[in-house]
């Protein structure tokens, strides 16, 4: 059975105003992503990885071209519609975990479901399941300042996946972690990808991440210079 594309990028151009001129961050990008991919956008700083991730995540809009995510054209979405898309279908993981410092681990993860108005009992089960997934059931009452870097990023993963999004967008998720924690995080995400068929798209230049990817898209100066399927070294 054919696996249809859930993200389609057609002739995408993104320009930013700089002084009196413009800077082209993405130049004529054409890509497709299918359900269950574990893909990395790699390239040096300024190559356009984060910009592409932001547009896929409906945090930004194309200057030209069409980007369709789960049948939603990003350019045509209103603020409210793009918020709803992120709320229901997209999960974000950032380099600096961005947990809410005054809330407990449980409450940080729960917040994603509060936005979906999920009933309390259902919410509790989903939060505990997510924390079990990332191996943090013993930390539910801890607050972010009490966690290690690896634990903090695992909470961020639990918060992103608790709503079972179709697509997870991770921007340099291992940049602040040591090697051991990086592998732990990546293994967790790989397991999510395999068991829940969640599509992962990474923006990274971390060699450790590349070892887990099954597709690597190389960007340079806003252009795709290479797009290759690979056999993950850490499978």
């Amino acid at each position: 059975m054919e696996n249809p594309a859930i993200i389609t990028i057609d002739k995408l151009i993104k320009r930013f105003p700089v002084g009196n001129g413009e800077f082209t961050a993405l130049n004529n990008i054409n890509l497709q992503f299918k359900k269950g991919e574990f893909t990395g956008l790699v390239g040096p700083s300024g190559s356009g990885k984060t910009t592409l991730l932001n547009i896929i995540g409906s945090l930004d809009t194309p200057t030209e071209g069409i980007v369709t995510v789960l049948d939603h054209s990003i350019a045509k979405l209103t603020h409210k519609q793009s918020a709803q898309l992120r709320n229901k279908h997209l999960g974000f993981i950032f380099q600096t975990y961005n947990l809410f410092p005054v809330y407990t681990v449980y409450e940080n993860v729960e917040f994603a479901l509060l936005l979906q108005h999920m009933p309390a009992a259902e919410r509790r089960k989903a939060v505990l399941d997510a924390l079990e997934w990332v191996g943090l059931t013993d930390k539910i009452n801890s607050k972010p300042p009490q966690l290690s870097g690896g634990e903090g990023q695992r909470v961020a993963i639990a918060r992103a996946m608790v709503k079972r999004p179709a697509i997870m967008l991770a921007d340099e998720p291992t940049a602040n972690l040591d090697s051991k924690n990086s592998h732990h995080i990546l293994q967790t995400m790989k397991r999510l990808n395999e068991e829940l068929q969640t599509t992962f798209i990474f923006a990274t230049h971390d060699e450790k991440v590349m070892g887990y990817l099954n597709r690597i898209i190389s960007l340079e100066d806003g252009k795709v210079v290479k797009d290759e399927q690979v056999v993950p070294a850490k499978n």
Binding site: A83, L85, R86, F94, N98
Partner: peptide, 14 residues
């Protein structure tokens, strides 16, 4: 700002 940015990313409306 971080909190607001994260809330926006999670799908909360402005």
């Amino acid at each position: 700002y971080n909190e607001f940015g994260m809330r926006l990313a999670m799908g909360e409306e402005k």
